[in-house]
């Protein structure tokens, strides 16, 4: 078998047109200036003509005057969901406790007069939570979900990052977007 010789093209792979540099400079200027033009137009639309935030082509926010819109897929602080009576849905089954990789959930179960189980104490150590969302997936009662809360997750004092049941309780309405999301197809399809 004859040895195949593969010829390797050396050089910078530029055409003469590109090497002459000037046209490429003009092309580069065209790109940046077209960005300049569209962005200027959108800024004029937004601030001078009052067309609102949606017309802006620049993605940067005027934080803190403008707050970011957190998408439902965002995993913020895990919170407990309460039912209509303001009582937590959790039945203290302990699945989340078992699923939690850094073991930051501590549950002390108890029983109500009507025989329902409930968490006598539910402590979530925010300083250890890795926001993986496994607790949410493990829960059979949709009692713990990942909220869109991202402020004050960090504190100078670690004891302030340990959340009790009372501080974690959110009404269904508050986490409705996330509930819709985890019930939707896309969520389950991505997982399984």
């Amino acid at each position: 078998m004859a040895i195949k010789i593969k010829k390797i093209e050396k050089g910078d792979g530029l055409t003469l047109w590109e090497k002459s540099y000037l046209p490429e400079i003009i092309r580069g200027l065209g790109i940046t200036l077209s960005h300049f033009a569209t962005n200027m137009k959108s800024l004029v639309d937004e601030f001078a003509l009052g067309k609102g935030r949606d017309s802006r082509t620049i993605m940067t926010l005027y934080y803190p005057e403008e707050q970011p819109v957190i998408p439902p897929a965002y995993r913020g602080r895990p919170v407990l969901v309460s039912d209509k009576n303001g009582v937590e849905k959790c039945v203290a089954c302990g699945l989340c406790e078992a699923a939690c990789p850094p073991a930051c959930i501590h549950i002390l179960g108890g029983e109500r007069d009507n025989g329902d189980r409930f968490p006598r104490s539910y402590v979530l150590d925010g300083s250890r939570c890795i926001f993986c969302g496994l607790c949410e997936e493990a829960c059979p009662k949709e009692a713990i979900v990942m909220s869109d809360e991202w402020r004050n997750l960090c504190q100078y004092d670690r004891t302030k990052m340990i959340y009790e049941k009372e501080t974690l309780l959110r009404s269904e309405a508050q986490v409705q977007k996330r509930l819709d999301f985890i019930r939707s197809n896309s969520f389950s399809r991505d997982r399984y």
Partner: peptide
């Protein structure tokens, strides 16, 4: 500001 607008940023404000 010009660099900011050219690069899809907001710039010093």
């Amino acid at each position: 500001k010009q660099s900011a607008v050219m690069q899809d940023r907001i710039g010093a404000n």
